[in-house]
């Protein structure tokens, strides 16, 4: 028996919004420690990694580990039927071929349940090595989204260059070039608005705008985003989901011409 209850279904709505551009379907691996999802996009350029810890749920029971393959568009249709402040309970029997989502309104005046067929997905899991990154940048997530959106008007790739002076996002194309520089802030009062840079070695890497823009669909999940970079390894774009876990996107770099 698997049962996970979360007071606010809006968190799941936001997660689905954040990954549905990249993934059509995905396996949710449920165990005693929580719910995990790892999946590459169709082009195998990026990887989505979601972790929701069992202790972040209001109720969590997982007698036996199970993997639930779900069509994310259909899951999004079901969550559209929930109000943001509805409580959601996800339920499945051991070895079941369906999953049930139950939504309860705050005052219990409305209870609905939706049963969805599970899919058998043959998804391979990749081993992600522990990395000491050369640069770790934390910045307001809406600012990162804004920069990606702005620069993608001018080019297909963004060069992210991190030095101790700050982070520079650059692009170029037929129109010309665009550069946005972000410096570390000294404003320690407003953590959500701060920019911090931890740099061991300067790093410059090039990434496809299309993917960066997809990742920023996760902006409503967290006020801050963390970018981790080392030479010649994938970028990690991480959104912390408060008290519950994280959503990470890994993006393979482009080789510069």
């Amino acid at each position: 028996m698997f049962e996970a209850r979360l007071v606010s279904s809006s968190t799941f709505k936001k997660i689905l919004d954040a990954v549905k551009d990249l993934l059509n379907e995905a396996s949710f691996d449920c165990s005693e420690s929580g719910i995990q999802l790892q999946a590459m996009d169709n082009s195998h350029v990026s990887l989505v990694s979601l972790m929701l810890r069992s202790d972040g749920f209001d109720k969590y029971r997982c007698d036996r580990s199970l993997t639930m393959g779900m069509n994310l568009a259909n899951m999004a249709k079901i969550f559209k039927c929930a109000n943001n402040d509805d409580t959601v309970t996800i339920k499945a029997q051991d070895d079941a071929d369906t999953v049930t989502f139950m939504f309860e309104a705050k005052k219990q005046e409305k209870i609905s349940d939706y049963e969805m067929k599970l899919m058998n997905l043959d998804q391979e899991h990749l081993g992600i090595p522990e990395t000491d990154f050369s640069c770790v940048i934390r910045m307001p997530s809406p600012e990162f989204a804004r920069i990606c959106r702005d620069l993608s008007q001018f080019g297909e790739s963004i060069v992210i260059s991190c030095t101790k002076e700050g982070v520079k996002f650059s692009t170029g194309g037929d129109i010309g070039t665009a550069n946005v520089k972000i410096a570390q802030t000294n404003n320690f009062d407003k953590e959500e608005e701060s920019v911090t840079i931890e740099m061991q070695e300067p790093v410059t890497l090039t990434f496809a705008c299309q993917y960066l823009n997809s990742f920023t669909k996760a902006t409503p999940l967290a006020p801050q985003v963390q970018l981790s970079m080392s030479d010649n390894v994938p970028l990690v774009v991480e959104y912390q989901i408060p008290d519950l876990g994280h959503l990470r996107f890994y993006l393979a770099p482009k080789i510069e011409d």
Binding site: M40, H44, L126, G127, I128, A208, P234, A252, D257
Partner: peptide
């Protein structure tokens, strides 16, 4: 796209 590397070049299969 030209010059785009794949993510599974970096992470081995489990």
């Amino acid at each position: 796209a030209r010059g785009q590397r794949k993510i599974d070049e970096f992470f081995g299969k489990n």
